Computed example of a mutant assay.
Amino acid sequence: MQAAPGATPPERLEVLRSGLPPQAIGVSDQTGQRWPYMSRRRPDTTASFWADMAAVAEDALNAADLSDHARATLPVLLGSTCLDMPDLEAALHSQPQAPALMNAHCGRTLDQLATELGLGGPQFTLSTACSSAANALLHARRLLVAGRAEHVLVIGTEFYNRLTLSGFASLLLLSPDTFRPFDADREGLILGEAVGAMVLSRQPRDRGDLGRLLGGATGCDPSSPTNSSPEFLVRIMQQALDDAGLTTDDLLAIKAHGTGTPSNDAAEGAALDRLFGNRHPVTSLKPYFGHTLGACGLVELAGLLEAWSAGFLPATPGFRTLGSGEQMTPITQPHPLPAEGAVLCNSFGFGGNTTSLVVAR
């Protein structure tokens, strides 16, 4: 995985344990206004766009130790909102009069990546806003449970592009300085870029497994063009627990979506309070990674599992004061996690796209 906290698990663990997010850089939207942005590299270049995806996917394939035959038939799922938009923006910038979008289609990113890696199985591209990679993981699990595959490669990717940055700026959803999920003074989110990959398998391996995907649920709330209602969020989280065969009391903790935007945090906080009360520690990992949009469901899950393997749930940076009328308070110090148990992971997207996953160790 490549993301703002660091390229290697030890680097990420050091940041997640410290509770101190990495320093954001500054990028400009189309009006010239500067915004903080979470990135490990200069996001105004696409030089490593394809290389980063290929390298991270190859790392996941090598870790799974798949045979040549398994790779040749391996299903691949990609979750992203930007897809190859950085590449297309660069092409349009270099040749403004050229038909840069003539070769644009939703499957191009995954098709090119699978060809480069020699993967010949079915390809699925999911773009359901911020639940994209979480839905890719959920669909991968269903392929495995149905016996359609023995292994599935899932990739979550989000890279800097001017259109996304300017779009969020125009909606007044960007924070000018600090990420503060669930805090009374939250002002918005800080975008980030990341690429992560996981191989899901039907059977556990002798070593190297980070965890198990027990179940999940997804749905789209039609009640609003942008947000989900607390009632709908409660329904999806409960369905995820039912799919995993668990009750609310069986969880160790909850990884919230926690965008730091007023309406999203209010809806998720109300839903968490109604379903769980204060029985479980809750955290948001977005201050460490930035909001990586379509990739966040996989990238934050990977960070959670790495921290869990080290025995702790990371704190939520930036939280200071509970808002008026709100009940959900995230943890502000790292919380010990037992070696075995289950955690609920939320990815709630723009347009009401809502996904909850249940993972276990």
Rank of each mutant, 00 (worst) to 15 (best):
A184L: 08
A253Q: 05
S309Q: 15
M53I: 15
I254N: 03
P204Q: 08
T157P: 00
R41N: 02
S18E: 04
R202A: 13
A54L: 14
Q23D: 11
G121D: 10
L171H: 13
L119N: 10
Q33E: 14
L313D: 02
S175F: 04
R40M: 04
A104D: 11
P330D: 06
H105C: 11
D68E: 15
T31C: 03
G107M: 14
S48E: 12
D185A: 13
P181S: 12
G294K: 02
N135T: 00
S131W: 05
T73E: 15
A60G: 02
P22R: 01
L304R: 05
L172R: 13
A184S: 15
A100F: 08
A114F: 07
S347P: 06
P5N: 07
A64S: 09
L153S: 05
G216H: 10
G323Q: 11
Q97K: 14
N353D: 01
T73D: 14
P99K: 11
D249G: 09
L66I: 05
L117C: 09
D249I: 00
P10R: 10
Q33P: 00
A267S: 14
S132H: 03
L305R: 05
A64C: 09
S201N: 02
T128D: 02
L101Q: 15
A63N: 02
L173P: 00
V56Q: 08
A70P: 03
L16C: 02
V152L: 09
V299H: 01
F124S: 11
L163V: 12
A244Q: 12
R235H: 12
T178R: 15
I331C: 11
D265A: 01
D111T: 12
R148Q: 14
E158Q: 13
A114C: 15
L126S: 03
G79W: 09
Q33W: 01
R186S: 08
D243L: 01
T8L: 05
L163H: 08
V359L: 05
G297P: 04
P10A: 04
T81K: 03
G188L: 05
A3L: 02
V234A: 06
L173K: 07
L200M: 10
G351I: 03
A55P: 02
F168L: 10
T283P: 09
L272Y: 10
I331F: 04
R207C: 06
E300G: 12
F232S: 04
L13N: 07
Q33H: 13
P75M: 13
L304S: 03
G325M: 11
T259G: 12
L163N: 05
D273P: 00
D84H: 14
